Amino acid sequence: MAKPKAKLETLQDKEILTSELAAIVGKTPQWIRQLTRDKVLNQVSRGKYNLGEAVQAYCEHVSGGKEEEQKPRLIDFKTRYEKTKAEKAELELERIKGNLHAAADVEWLLSDMILTIKTRLLGVPSRVSTECENESADVVESVVRREIETALSAMAKYTPDQIGGDVSHGGPEDS
């Protein structure tokens, strides 16, 4: 009569030592013991692990942990961090190309432009009053129009290259 075959242990059910598990995952035995203390890995007995369970638990740990509703995973933070770095690099590239400007620089340019226009427009009455003394309404109107157009043409001379606080234009660095 033939002997009954001994039940073969499957690979995933095999018990392995700490040093063997460390070699499998490419870490040190100390690292494996730390993961055991952190309850990432579970020993079946002192210094022994179930191969299948240990590898699955380690893979889950490396990928950021279990996907739970309330707890963000490490992989989610890494993904968000990498996405933020990429966005920052894109913005920096646009700034270097001159397509993007700092809000403070734009604010400075607009403030400067508005103050220049305000000064020119407030100066119109004094310039017109001396020039238009004893003149007809048509002459006064044309002089006022000319002065306003002069003030507006100064505004039209502003260009995006003036953004950035160029010292020759009295930028934010001068404040």
Score class of each variant (00 low, 15 high):
8 L>R: 09
11 L>S: 12
11 L>K: 07
14 K>V: 06
15 E>A: 15
15 E>S: 15
16 I>V: 04
17 L>Q: 11
19 S>D: 09
19 S>C: 04
19 S>E: 12
20 E>I: 00
22 A>C: 05
22 A>P: 01
23 A>L: 12
24 I>L: 15
25 V>H: 01
28 T>D: 12
28 T>A: 10
30 Q>C: 09
33 R>T: 04
35 L>R: 03
36 T>Q: 11
36 T>R: 05
37 R>K: 14
37 R>H: 09
40 V>R: 03
42 N>T: 00
42 N>P: 00
43 Q>W: 02
43 Q>K: 10
43 Q>P: 03
43 Q>M: 12
45 S>R: 15
46 R>T: 08
47 G>V: 09
49 Y>E: 10
50 N>V: 07
51 L>F: 04
51 L>H: 02
53 E>H: 01
54 A>P: 02
54 A>F: 03
55 V>W: 00
55 V>D: 03
65 G>I: 03
67 E>W: 02
68 E>L: 15
68 E>F: 02
70 Q>W: 04
70 Q>L: 14
73 R>D: 07
73 R>C: 11
73 R>V: 03
74 L>W: 02
75 I>K: 10
80 R>N: 13
81 Y>E: 15
81 Y>G: 13
81 Y>L: 15
83 K>S: 13
83 K>W: 05
84 T>D: 14
88 K>V: 08
88 K>G: 05
91 L>H: 07
91 L>A: 14
92 E>L: 12
92 E>H: 02
95 R>N: 08
96 I>C: 08
99 N>G: 14
100 L>A: 14
101 H>A: 15
101 H>Q: 12
101 H>R: 14
103 A>N: 05
103 A>S: 06
107 E>R: 11
107 E>I: 07
107 E>W: 00
107 E>Q: 11
108 W>G: 08
109 L>D: 04
110 L>R: 08
110 L>S: 09
111 S>F: 05
111 S>L: 14
111 S>A: 12
111 S>R: 07
114 I>H: 04
116 T>I: 05
117 I>K: 06
117 I>T: 00
117 I>W: 03
117 I>R: 07
119 T>C: 06
119 T>L: 12
119 T>K: 11
121 L>K: 01
124 V>D: 06
125 P>A: 07
126 S>G: 06
127 R>N: 13
128 V>K: 00
129 S>F: 03
134 N>W: 04
134 N>Q: 11
135 E>R: 07
136 S>H: 10
136 S>L: 14
139 V>L: 10
141 E>R: 06
142 S>R: 06
142 S>E: 12
144 V>M: 08
144 V>S: 08
146 R>K: 10
147 E>D: 12
147 E>H: 11
148 I>W: 00
148 I>T: 02
149 E>Y: 09
150 T>S: 11
